[in-house]
Nucleic acid binder design. Structure first.
Length: 104
DNA sequence: CTGGTGACCATTA
DNA sequence: TTAATGGCCACCA
């Protein structure tokens, strides 16, 4: 069955799916582009609930500071690796958002 | 219902 | 630069 919330998460995932290779976006921006201003946390929640089979470019979503939102974990290391492999440049722990920020 | 938690954010100190 | 704070809201005990 399909509820309104499923739709909300679906829209968020659709937006994330549009992020091209080598580009990144932030939780707040994704929420905004999806029509949910101020609901950045919902983006994180939607991703957390998305199984790997969803094949979303989850690694292209970082926080507003250009940093990875995971604390020490495999995900943190993997995300950075995947991004670097796509050509995203890091300045220490931060991504150069001015250069890689994506907009729809 | 209440309170705690969280892949967040902007502001303030 | 890091921390604390208040705001946001779905989910869970």
């Amino acid at each position: 069955m399909v509820s309104d919330k499923d739709t909300v998460y679906g829209i968020i995932r659709e937006t994330i799916r549009q992020i091209p290779r080598g580009k990144v976006s932030t939780y707040g921006e994704i929420a905004k582009f999806s029509g949910f201003i101020g609901r950045a946390r919902m983006v994180g929640y939607a991703l957390r609930n998305s199984p790997t089979g969803m094949k979303l470019p989850w690694h292209r979503v970082v926080n507003s500071q250009g940093k990875i939102s995971f604390r020490r974990s495999r995900h943190h290391a993997m995300q950075k690796t995947l991004l670097v492999k796509e050509g995203v440049t890091f300045k220490g722990e931060k991504i150069n958002l001015a250069k890689h920020r994506w907009r729809p």
